[in-house]
Amino acid sequence: MNNLETKFYNAFIVKDRWILYLKGLGVTLEIAVAAGIIGIIIGCIIALMRLSEPKNGRKHTLWWYIATAYVDVIRGTPSVLQLLIMWFIVFSSSKNGLLVASLSFGINSGAYVSEIIRAGILAVDKGQMEAGRSLGLTKAMTMKEIVLPQAFKNVLPPIGNEFIMLIKETAIVGYVSLSDLTRTASQISSRTYEAFMPLIGAAVIYFIIIKILTLLLEALERRLRKSDNR
């Protein structure tokens, strides 16, 4: 028992180490939120590119080919490699690891988000678009007023899921020497020669953050669903 207390003391209290965990969590969340926003913006654009309708008998638009190539490349390579490539090759002159990591994860997430949004839009009944068009509304108006609001409800749960994945995936930023929550925990464990407390501690922090997020998403979903039965 005494032993456990000492371990806890060494892992969290000595030299105010708990502050390091909090700072690490800050880095994790900063990257996740920035990447999440970048991912949603890219995802929307890519989804619309993939849904663009070809004219005069062609099979796909030029936009479709570009967007599809992007999704293929991103999904076909490990995110750690993408991060390393961004850090050591694309932005090798940049010192701002936080920015590069956010961008890298955002570009990665965008590919997955685009597929979620595309599926969400396709899941809206075709008749909704036809009804809008038959009244003389343009495609863009019908999209904005009718299809996208309904698609939003469809995509909320998988987008939430994607964001949760994103938070955990940022644990690899240690590769480009950013001190996020995971790297902080592992650094502390190598200083105290004791792995249990820092690693389990970090795991518990991730878990709590994600649990809170899950509860918030569920509440939002419930509110959106209510309008279905009025």
């Binding site: 009944d125 008749g127 909704q128 036809e130 009804a131 809008g132 068009r133 038959s134 009244l135 003389g136 007023e145 009718i146 609001p149 309904q150 309008s227």
Partner: peptide, 16 residues
């Protein structure tokens, strides 16, 4: 189309 009303088999009222 503003001058041509259309009524569908499956109603297609805007669900939102």
């Amino acid at each position: 189309r503003e001058h041509m009303g259309m009524v569908f088999q499956s109603f297609n009222l805007f669900a939102n």
